[in-house]
């Protein structure tokens, strides 16, 4: 079974189990699955001002949509818009195709929904940016404190105060997913 089909199965699973979240949430859920939980999705996330991103996630979402596995609806609200992604007519078929992969990583999928399923898009942006900066520091064998990691993230997101980011970093740290902080 190709990785692409596995990706489509994961996206379909998330669409069916995350209560109509949008594209940002889907992107960050995939990021956490791959980077924090080690699910081999094969994406290449790089950093943007809005956090880790790989356009392949949206390409896969488009493929899943075209195949009827998920639906994506534009939702308008004051000042802007978002998307509501839900399971589609052929979601079960895709789950069947990707059954082995979904089964192998069921705990990880459940973990991401349990821990981040209710976070809003801006919190997911900040949390994933913290994890991205953390993983870079860990690869460089840097040992950071919450303060130092928060300072790095503030350089990327200067609209937040250092206090806001530190508070948020503690929240992410409490999940046990930061590697560079001893």
């Amino acid at each position: 079974m190709s990785t692409d089909v596995n990706r489509l199965a994961v996206i379909t699973w998330l669409a069916g189990n995350c209560g109509g979240r949008g594209r940002t949430a889907l992107m960050k859920f995939c990021y956490f699955l791959q980077v924090v939980r080690g699910v081999p999705l094969g994406y290449r996330f790089t950093l943007y001002s809005y956090g880790p991103f790989d356009s392949d996630v949206l390409s896969d979402l488009g493929s899943a949509e075209a195949m009827g596995c998920v639906t994506s609806t534009v939702v308008y609200f004051s000042g802007g818009y978002g998307y509501r992604i839900e399971a589609g007519e052929f979601a079960e078929k895709m789950q069947e195709i990707g059954r082995d992969f979904i089964g192998a990583y069921a705990d990880d999928l459940r973990w991401v929904v349990d821990h981040f399923g209710s976070w809003d898009a801006s919190d997911l942006e900040l949390a994933s940016t913290l994890v991205y900066a953390d993983r870079e520091a860990y690869r460089d064998e840097a040992e950071l404190t919450v303060q130092k990691l928060s300072q790095r993230v503030r350089e990327l997101k200067p609209r937040f105060s250092i206090g806001q980011i530190e508070g948020f970093a503690e929240r992410v740290r409490s999940l046990g997913i930061l590697q560079s902080i001893r």
Partner: peptide, 19 residues
């Protein structure tokens, strides 16, 4: 490359790689 080392410049990454 898209790393945290871009600091405040990260906003401009959309000019280098985006839709």
């Amino acid at each position: 490359e898209g790393t945290a080392g871009a600091k405040q410049g990260i906003f401009w990454r959309d000019i280098i790689s985006s839709q």
